[in-house]
Design a protein around this nucleic acid. Structure first.
Lengths: 125, 125
DNA sequence: CCTAATACCTCGTCCTTCTAGGTATAATAT
DNA sequence: ATATTATACCTAGAAGGACGAGGTATTAGG
């Protein structure tokens, strides 16, 4: 329940940049898209209080820029567009994520066979 | 450089439990093992200031228990042993991690083909 | 003898996310 | 007509997790 939130840590910016690399989007839309992609299972939920400050930070860094648009519904939306700088950053973070997740998976899969050894030491559960 | 630290967030407990599931270990050993497994590339580095509080927390929760042992070198080591409760927790966190990382990977790989759509909207980089 | 390595620990700081609030407009229900 | 819900944006402060920097003690090596 609580671990999900923690897992998100650090990969939030990566996810935001990824979404924007697929096309310009506005904040509310990104949250809805992530929510839909995680089948509403709370696996990948991004909160407004998290997203908006991140978008502002990315814009300040020049990784994205924004423009407002009137939707056909009459609503004003603020769209974000990823820049070349943002794309470079995305690639870099993607590499880091891949390296990291592979290492974690390697450790996770390497533990089961050594189960016998775990019981060889003095233990009391 | 800095993103690595953040990526670690949330999966630290999972990694610690994984290491212990492969056999009883002491703190210093776990740090060295993770460092070796990440080829010293800083991808998976766990710091003492992070590990020890986590181990104490896990022990308080009953996920691990500990015993001291005199090594052949004459040094006193504090070994940690994972309990049944800890194993259950490990399995749960493993599932969460797997679900999470798969979703992230799905998003990462789903972005490139939509590149054309990204340029259909009004944009200015 | 003095330094480096082993082995443990903790406190305060920083960074990231969330909670909980706020504003404003459009659509829907009453 | 009016109230509620949904859309769409925002922010300040709280909370949580990892780290840096410090500390202690013992052993090995120069």
């Amino acid at each position: 329940m609580k671990a999900d939130k923690n897992l998100l840590s650090g990969s939030t910016t990566l996810l935001v940049l990824s979404l924007l690399a697929a096309g310009d989007k506005y904040g509310y839309e990104m949250i809805a898209e992530l929510d839909a992609r995680s089948d509403h299972t709370f696996t990948l939920t991004l909160k407004e209080g998290t997203l908006y400050p991140i978008l502002h930070g990315l814009e300040k860094d020049g990784a994205v820029n924004s423009y407002t648009r009137e939707a056909s519904t009459g609503r004003t939306r603020k769209y974000y567009h990823i820049t070349r700088k943002g794309l470079r950053r995305l690639e870099e973070q993607k590499r880091e994520w891949t390296a990291f997740s592979q290492k974690v998976n390697a450790i996770l899969s390497a533990l089961s066979p050594a189960e016998g050894e775990a019981l060889s030491g003095p233990a009391s559960s």
